[in-house]
Computed example of a mutant assay.
Amino acid sequence: MKGRFTLSTCDRRDRVWRRRGERSAACNILQHDRFGSGSVMVWGGISFKWGTALHVLARGSLTAIRYRDEILRPLVRPYAGAVGPGFLLMQDNARPHVAGVCQQFLQDEGIDAMDWPALFPRPESN
């Protein structure tokens, strides 16, 4: 599991639903600083019985090398060993997850990863 937490209310993703003629109504105006927002990326592993410590990733993008060196090697490998046979890693198709260097690491360590479909089937409408 990975996530992104915004450190301020302004992450440029605010949405406002308003009625016609309410564009400038005080209740639809959100003040924010102009110094930019911040965020922190975290990763944590969970399963039926256990979980890993929450790992805070330092500044910068999560590359395949960082994913292998900061997540897979120090966190996933020992976690998989603690869970034992039948451990199956579930991750999405983010570029670092599917990069060759990470896939090779998982294969070398004998860690199976669940196939994650590019698109989930949509439920039938009745």
Score class of each variant (00 low, 15 high):
residue 1 M to D: 12
residue 2 K to C: 06
residue 2 K to E: 09
residue 4 R to P: 00
residue 4 R to A: 05
residue 4 R to Y: 07
residue 6 T to R: 08
residue 7 L to R: 11
residue 8 S to C: 13
residue 8 S to T: 15
residue 9 T to W: 12
residue 9 T to I: 15
residue 9 T to M: 15
residue 12 R to F: 06
residue 13 R to M: 11
residue 13 R to F: 01
residue 17 W to N: 03
residue 17 W to E: 06
residue 18 R to N: 01
residue 19 R to W: 04
residue 19 R to F: 01
residue 21 G to D: 13
residue 22 E to Q: 11
residue 22 E to Y: 01
residue 23 R to D: 08
residue 23 R to F: 11
residue 25 A to N: 12
residue 26 A to G: 11
residue 26 A to S: 14
residue 27 C to M: 11
residue 27 C to S: 14
residue 28 N to C: 09
residue 32 H to M: 09
residue 34 R to H: 11
residue 35 F to N: 10
residue 36 G to H: 10
residue 36 G to Y: 06
residue 37 S to D: 10
residue 42 V to S: 07
residue 43 W to I: 03
residue 44 G to T: 07
residue 44 G to A: 15
residue 47 S to G: 12
residue 47 S to L: 05
residue 48 F to M: 03
residue 49 K to N: 09
residue 50 W to N: 04
residue 55 H to Y: 13
residue 56 V to D: 07
residue 57 L to I: 15
residue 58 A to P: 14
residue 62 L to I: 15
residue 63 T to L: 13
residue 69 D to L: 10
residue 69 D to T: 08
residue 72 L to T: 06
residue 73 R to H: 08
residue 74 P to M: 02
residue 74 P to E: 08
residue 75 L to K: 00
residue 76 V to M: 05
residue 77 R to C: 04
residue 79 Y to K: 01
residue 83 V to Y: 01
residue 87 F to N: 00
residue 87 F to A: 00
residue 89 L to C: 03
residue 91 Q to N: 10
residue 91 Q to L: 08
residue 95 R to P: 04
residue 97 H to F: 07
residue 98 V to Q: 04
residue 98 V to H: 00
residue 101 V to P: 05
residue 101 V to I: 15
residue 102 C to M: 10
residue 105 F to T: 04
residue 105 F to R: 02
residue 106 L to I: 15
residue 108 D to F: 04
residue 108 D to V: 13
residue 109 E to W: 09
residue 111 I to A: 01
residue 113 A to C: 09
residue 115 D to L: 06
residue 117 P to H: 08
residue 119 L to K: 10
residue 120 F to V: 08
residue 121 P to N: 07
residue 124 E to W: 06
residue 125 S to A: 14
